[in-house]
Design a protein around this nucleic acid. Structure first.
Length: 485
RNA sequence: GUCCCCAUCGUCUAGCCUGGCCUAGGACACCGGCCUUUCACGCCGGCAACAGGGGUUCAAAUCCCCUUGGGGACGCCA
């Protein structure tokens, strides 16, 4: 029996939650839930300059939107500074780390030099072998210092990544990396290792960009005498140009997709599909189903490219399959955004509103579509599409007569329902020798503004007698003056 | 440049570990067709890949080596 699984998502609040981070969080979350483990949120805000509380709040909000709730945390590293300092000092006492008095300018110069020469830069170890006296003098002079880890000169670090292959790096490739900066703040390596081990993290699931950090951290675990967790480095997400997805590829913030009308269920599933193979014939999976199926063994090694088309397809699938009640709040929001919302949609017309969502959802891929493509269903203020006019507004006497007769017949009815509206239309079409398709097409554009719509009789029933008559009148007027010859 | 990792349709991937069932499967996208009052949905069909070269073997997408290509890391950022 292994230990209880404990994983963490550890973003640094120097920007919004981006797609890559969200997916890392998701894999951690799925893994934790699948194994009855604990999912912890840790905020790595040790870079005071760039971190902010606002940003970490937004990240938490985005995680929750995606349906990921954490069991412990958020733990802020900025509140644990004392711990890291103590560990660093202890390492110095034990001779496993040392004070480095080199100043930044000096180091920058050496790095620059190395770059010019085209040789790989590595800290030269100037302060590694300082004598006791030199150290004392520096200290007495109050020279600022950083603490560096003393990397063994020889040996090979090997680890078996859960996702990748066996990875091995020679110690000679590693430099004496900084643990504690001269301002007293820990670097990533220190705070990460200290926290992971103190929090009892069993599996470190993170982006493949961290692979090269792992050997250093393993060394640190050893120096500290702590258990080394399992590592799972998941492949990166690439933009269309095959480089790591970043701001310049456009929208990378999760919040942007939320605003653009993507459903959290859809977005999470899409994220999971980049780098994970659920091995099932099911096309769409909910979060619970993903949890059921998730296994790190099914995480692939190759980087994935972000494919918006697929996201949209998945989103469309979710929109189609979700009950209108679930879609309602999102549709309300987007209608508000477009100034199409009316209070009665949530009041006396709620059922009618739900019916509308249900009618439309199967052909929409974004929530936004309810307000754009679906404008005519919720507002009387809409125009006819070019395509609609072109295709169905033909000047034709028989068509015109039929339209007028339909208008009359409809107005005689108490209520326009699905059956009656169709019965009347079909008989009028026959009477005037007009193809019912042409008649329906023209009416569709008059009622909805588009050539694309749900079944016309559904639309008629949904809009109701009053609106149908008004729109028909308006349409007939329009046809008289602007119809195509 | 140095080190590390990766390599199947345009894209996401199955198959690779434990060679033969692979004339390489699925999905998105794309293109046809059916259904239909339109579109969408749905259904049917099509296009399309083992990066290249050497081995090993009776047999290689699967194992080994090289080349090429791609990505990542080389900070007192995380």
């Amino acid at each position: 029996m292994g230990k209880k699984v404990r994983v963490r998502f550890a973003p640094s609040p120097t920007g919004y939650l981006h797609i890559g981070g969200a997916r890392t969080a998701l894999f951690n979350y799925l893994f934790a839930r699948r194994n009855g483990g604990v999912f912890i949120l840790r905020i790595e805000d040790t870079d005071v300059e760039r971190s902010s509380k606002e940003l970490s709040d937004v990240i938490i909000e985005d995680l929750k939107w995606l349906g990921m709730d954490f069991d412990e945390g958020p733990i802020y590293q900025s509140e644990r500074l004392e711990i890291y300092r103590n560990v660093a000092e202890k390492l110095v006492e034990e001779g496993k780390a040392y004070r480095c008095f080199c100043n930044k300018e000096e180091l920058e110069r050496k790095r620059e030099e190395a770059r010019k020469k085209g040789v790989p830069y590595k800290y030269d170890g100037t302060c590694r072998n300082l004598t006791e006296d030199e150290i004392k003098r520096n200290l007495r002079e109050n020279k600022p210092y950083a603490i560096r880890f003393k990397v063994p000169q020889e040996g090979i670090i090997r680890f078996k990544d859960v996702v990748q292959k066996k990875i091995e790096v020679k110690c000679s490739e590693l430099e004496d990396f900084v643990l504690l900066r001269s301002d007293g703040y820990p670097t990533y390596h220190l705070s990460c290792v200290v926290d992971d081990s103190e929090m009892g993290i069993t599996h470190v699931i993170r982006g493949a960009d961290h692979i090269s950090n792992t050997p250093k951290q393993i060394l640190l675990y050893r120096a500290l005498g702590r258990d080394i967790p399992k590592f799972a480095h998941i492949p990166l997400i690439l933009g269309p140009d095959r480089t790591r997805l970043s701001k310049r590829h456009g929208a990378t913030a999760v919040s942007k997709y939320r605003e653009d009308g993507f459903l959290p269920e859809a977005f999470a599933y899409f994220l999971a599909l980049m780098g994970w193979s659920p091995r099932t014939n099911k096309k769409i999976l909910t979060m619970d189903e993903m949890i059921e199926l998730f296994d790190l063994k099914d995480v692939v090694k190759t980087n994935a490219m972000f494919d918006l088309k697929k996201l949209e397809w998945i989103n469309g699938k979710f929109i189609s399959s979700l009950p209108p009640e679930r879609l309602l709040p999102d549709v309300v929001n987007v209608l508000k955004k477009y100034n199409l919302f009316r209070e009665e949609f949530l009041g006396e017309k709620r059922d009618w509103f739900l019916k509308g969502i249900d009618l439309l959802k199967i052909r929409y891929r974004r929530i936004e579509d309810f307000a754009t493509l679906g404008r005519a269903y919720f507002s009387d203020d809409f125009s006819y599409s070019e395509e609609g006019i072109e295709k169905y507004f033909k000047k034709d006497d028989a068509l015109m007569d039929a339209l007028v007769e339909i208008l009359n017949e409809y107005s005689l009815l108490d209520e326009l329902d699905l059956e009656m509206s169709e019965k009347i239309l079909r008989s009028v079409a026959e009477k005037y020798g007009v193809k019912s398709g042409d008649l329906i097409g023209a009416i569709r554009v008059m009622l909805t503004g588009h050539v694309v719509a749900p079944g016309i009789f559904d639309v008629i029933e949904f809009l109701g007698k009053d609106r149908v008559l008004k729109r028909l009148q308006r349409g007939i007027q329009f046809l008289k003056s602007y119809g195509k010859e």
